[in-house]
């Protein structure tokens, strides 16, 4: 955290020195141009796709200095939706997300490593089911520019694979279903 503050302070000084500033973006929740999805194997035979319908967050982004980007996302875990009432009820229960205890999941980036023209590895702390672990997102920059309504937008997608047991979720779904892939896409409106 201290490092982050130091980096932020450094960023501000650089701004004062006339260098390009990373702009702050609010994830477009109102227009719902963002989604957090996951997929998990069912018995090794097919995929179950699910999503979190309610989340919010911000990111800072500067195309000239992508390594200085940062993102924060907070997810309402109760909003999990796999289009199956009883399964969703089970996922919200103690066997999985335990949403009455852990109503939110959060991701806070701690570093960005640029890996290509439009790709980067975003490292951060993911708190899920009350357990905080570092994870690495494989992120892609999709595009940015003015929207038709007077705003300015930038968007990304990212994936990562989580081992459920790492987050204290050890309900036995079978050997093919010990990991879940997170697939997210966010579009932010520049503030």
């Amino acid at each position: 955290m201290k490092k982050l503050i130091a980096a932020t302070t450094l960023g501000s000084l650089m701004l004062a020195a006339g260098l390009a500033q990373a702009a702050d973006y609010q994830i477009d929740k109102q227009g719902q141009h963002a989604s957090i999805n996951f997929k998990i194997s069912h018995l090794g035979y097919s995929w179950v796709y699910g999503r979190f319908n309610d989340f919010d967050g911000t990111f800072s982004w500067d195309a000239d200095k992508p390594e200085a980007s940062a993102i924060n996302v907070t997810v309402n875990t109760e909003s999990v939706d796999t289009n199956h009432a009883e399964r969703d009820k089970h996922i919200r229960g103690e066997d999985f997300l335990n949403v009455s205890e852990n109503a939110t999941a959060t991701f806070t980036s701690t570093g960005v490593e640029v890996t290509g023209d439009n790709s980067a590895k975003v490292t951060g702390d993911l708190t899920l089911n009350g357990v905080t672990k570092p994870v690495v997102l494989d992120a892609n920059f999709i595009g940015e520019g003015e929207d038709p309504w007077g705003g300015y937008r930038a968007g990304f997608d990212a994936t990562t694979t989580l081992k459920l047991a790492d987050f204290g979720i050890d309900y036995n779904l079978g050997p093919a279903s010990e990991t879940v892939e997170l697939i997210l896409t966010v579009e932010g409106v520049r503030q």
């Binding site: 289009n83 199956h84 009432a85 009883e86 969703d88 009820k89």
Partner: peptide, 8 residues
């Protein structure tokens, strides 16, 4: 209401 929560 549990079973029909998602329209099934």
């Amino acid at each position: 209401l549990i079973s029909t929560a998602k329209g099934r």
